[in-house]
Amino acid sequence: MMAQPNFDDILAAARRLEGKVKRTPLLESSLLNKWLGHRILFKAECLQTIGAFKLRGALNVLAKCAENDCLPTRVVANSSGNHAQAVAYAATLFKIPATIFAADTISPIKAAATRSYGAQLKLFENRVLADAAVQQAASEPGTLWIPPFNDNDVIAGQGTATYEALQDAGQVDAVFGPCGGGGLLSGALIATRAMQPEAVVIGAEPEQANDASRSLQSGIIEHLPRPAKTLADGAATPSVGELTFTWLQQLDDFYEVNEVQIAYWTQWLQHLLKVHVEPTSALSMAAVTAWAVENPTPKTALVMLSGGNISASGMQQIWQQDYLLQPPNLTEQDDANA
């Protein structure tokens, strides 16, 4: 059985990352709180350096290597975008060349940012081919592969986002996060169980990329039969990992979110919070809304806003219909399936 990260690993990661990542703020909207009847706090990792929480995991891996005097001569990674930028940025900080392997459907803005941080970007027809290529590259001497989620040090690094948020928020009743490969949610679960064990932890993913949901239902890791087509490109991973699946199985609830809801809540979060969030960040709001309806007594929820990187074409898709013309009808926000 594979070793599992624990809360001590998150604490160690937090010490390593101090001064290297931003302590992103908690945001809230009084109007949204009024509509939902609950206090909703948002951990704004969209304001993180490189615009996403992924920097925490990548930096923790290399900072731990530096701590142990075993930095590699080259790093490689496979990613749909935010992890690519994170590894590229982290490698630059440690003056190590980086090569990123990705599907050619990668968001143009994420691809451009990855190259701007100095990494070489190799594109493939699909994610499966990119994943196979990175495995081969990782076998070369002196090369370190930094996986996007299925790695103890990556999970521990991502967990520092929830660790910070719970320190700043005080007592909460629920923690919500989007699910791609499961690294952010795994770290959130570890931190929450240690710091506030009474709080529930709930995940959400696109209905069009529902490998995690199907895996949780079947009890085994399920793979998407074909590349996912979803606005939430950050959650379009082919499958979760062996490490993350173990933690995802301990979640208190899990939701699938359709494309209309993803566009809907991306617009509303940008409007209410006055920050630029990407569609993956909006996944949790469908789950939050369902949870709010089911809990008539006022409670406090923490929502992890995973990132804020979205291309012009992505913005056009999000805004094909303007959902801000009237306030949300929260009683009709029931298309997320538990």
Results as ranks from 00 to 15, higher is better:
C179M: 13
D104P: 00
L36F: 11
N6W: 12
D168G: 13
A84L: 06
Q171F: 06
Q48C: 04
S218N: 12
A301K: 01
L231K: 08
V76R: 04
A119T: 06
A119F: 13
T160F: 01
S311R: 02
N329G: 06
D151C: 11
H83M: 04
E45L: 02
V61F: 05
W291D: 11
D8G: 06
V134Y: 12
L248P: 02
A138N: 03
T162V: 14
P147I: 09
S239M: 09
F7T: 04
A174G: 05
L272N: 05
C65N: 10
G180D: 06
P147T: 14
R74I: 11
G177I: 09
T230H: 03
S186K: 03
A63S: 15
P327F: 12
F42Q: 09
A301D: 08
S213D: 11
E259A: 01
R23Y: 12
M2Y: 05
E140H: 03
H38V: 00
P238M: 08
L330W: 06
V277D: 12
P141A: 02
G19L: 04
Q85A: 13
A119P: 03
L129S: 10
G219C: 10
S311I: 06
K122A: 09
I100M: 09
S29L: 05
N150S: 07
T289I: 00
F254C: 06
L248A: 07
K122E: 14
V200S: 05
L216W: 13
V277N: 11
S306G: 09
A84K: 00
I262E: 13
A66M: 09
H271Q: 14
A103S: 15
F176S: 07
I221R: 03
A165D: 04
I220K: 01
G37Y: 09
Q158F: 00
A209T: 10
Q196I: 12
L325N: 11
K20H: 07
S107C: 08
F101W: 07
C70V: 14
C46N: 15
G37H: 11
P206V: 11
W247Y: 13
A12S: 12
Y255N: 01
G307A: 08
Q48H: 08
A88V: 03
Y89C: 08
K110H: 04
V288F: 02
L273V: 07
I190A: 09
F254E: 08
F101Y: 14
V175A: 14
G187Y: 07
N337D: 11
G81H: 06
G234D: 02
W247C: 10
W145L: 15
A204E: 04
H38K: 07
F149M: 09
L11W: 14
A236S: 12
T162A: 15
A290L: 07
A66C: 05
P97N: 13
L11K: 15
N60Y: 02
L27G: 01
E28T: 15
H83F: 14
P227A: 11
A209H: 04
G180R: 01
A86Q: 04
N258D: 14
R16T: 07
E294T: 04
D233T: 05
L129F: 01
I220C: 00
I262Q: 11
A338L: 14
I50A: 00
A235H: 02
S239F: 02
D211A: 09
N126C: 10
H83L: 09
L248C: 08
Q261V: 01
M304F: 00
A12K: 14
P178I: 03
A98F: 08
W268P: 04
R193W: 15
